[in-house]
Design a protein around this nucleic acid. Structure first.
Lengths: 223, 223
DNA sequence: TCAAGAAGATTGTCATACAATCTTTCAATA
DNA sequence: TATTGAAAGATTGTATGACAATCTTCTTGA
């Protein structure tokens, strides 16, 4: 075997599909925070068996995307502001480093892609499309994280962001948040493009602090 | 209800027990890295049904303590040095901050406990008991993490450390590693005790870098 | 109005089944 | 001899059905 490229077309299993579907549903706010997920209902809705569903739920529970209380079953976590803060703090520790490392190692092509995603966000910010704002922001960040050189950092960051996805989408709908977010992201991009690590880290830190403040505002507004 | 303390004696479920048992087994090196876990065997060994086992396995897979390849089933991950490095790097980002924050907020009683665990490690280091070295080191760190003020940081740190538990136990058996580890931990303790955040962070960073170097040595020795 | 208890719903767990897929064996072929 | 191919066996992915334990809701009696 001259190469050991993974040619395996990994088969989509019911479990994987279910996890992805539920994850998406949670992200999109399809379930009310705090609400219980009734297994039998989900089974019929998803068209799968209970064992398969429960396996998927255990996966999501391990990711902390759902809670599992014995004899009460699965439910959507109701995050306190304290927990959200804690998540943002950890996210800051990781993201700042990721941005810094990214600024030192990103390739020309990837930088091009990053630029593109920034333009896409700018476009989404000008319109009033909050879904597009979220997805383009996610693109922007996933490119940075994919180029920080540390797949574990990338993985953990993704997990953290997933847990606060609701707050992010809410705060992105806040009056003026998209505009200032755009400015912050531009600063990050410029610093990365010029290979200035210190500036990149600093811009990243500023962005997260503002995002956290916006999330707090959004949380207070919604309860 | 005057208090909302959680009085619930959370019932031990088969799933929880199984996850804990398997986690312990993995930590203790009971399974060879890379080896496959045959569901039917585990079922009889653990005395549980296959659906229950599979739920437990999904939890562990989400924690990255086992791999799950479709149609090949669960197996013990075989970490590359690159992955181990990546984990150590992320651990550094988090742990350094945790130690720093801990130095600013730990209580007298908790500091007492920390001191105790350090003494316990010293004792274990003098003997040639590698299991005791691991557990006492774990105590030391869990006290620090529990006092950093950020439960999410604590949780993620635990997950990361779990994934490299094998390397830690191997490197702790390395000639002289326990001795130098003791010195590093003492430095961390002293910095925390004196409330010197910068010194605490610096000591913590040094400790992790040395631990990583030791892990690399151990990995090269064992293959 | 409130408490006790009964009825119903839901979860935790198990046993069983079977098709799809992987692995191994072993013979046949180049 | 080395390689290919096919058959047999093992293992996983998924589903159905079942039932006790527990939680929730509703009813009834005080």
């Amino acid at each position: 075997m001259s190469q050991d490229i993974n040619l395996r077309v990994s088969p989509r299993t019911v479990q994987q599909e279910t996890v992805n579907t539920l994850r998406q549903a949670i992200f999109s706010g399809h379930f009310e925070p705090g609400s219980r997920l009734v297994e039998s209902q989900l089974c019929t809705q998803l068209g799968i068996s209970r064992p398969s569903l429960r396996e998927a739920l255990r996966s999501l529970a391990a990711e902390r995307l759902i809670d599992f209380v014995p004899n009460r079953g699965p439910s959507i976590p109701n995050l306190t502001w304290g927990e959200v803060t804690a998540i943002y703090e950890v996210r800051e520790m990781l993201e700042v480093n990721a941005v810094g490392q990214c600024s030192q190692r990103i390739s020309k092509e990837q930088l091009q892609k990053l630029k593109k995603s920034l333009v896409a966000f700018e476009e989404a910010a000008s319109r009033n499309d909050s879904l597009a704002r979220i997805t383009t922001t996610e693109d922007f960040y996933s490119i940075i994280l994919a180029n920080c050189g540390n797949p574990i950092l990338e993985e953990i960051h993704r997990g953290l962001v997933a847990r606060i996805s609701l707050f992010r989408s809410r705060s992105m709908s806040l009056e003026g948040r998209a505009i200032s977010s755009l400015a912050e992201m531009k600063a990050i991009y410029e610093a990365i493009a010029s290979g200035n690590e210190a500036a990149a880290k600093s811009a990243s830190r500023k962005h997260i602090l503002k995002a956290m403040a916006a999330a707090k505002k959004a949380m207070e507004a919604t309860g």
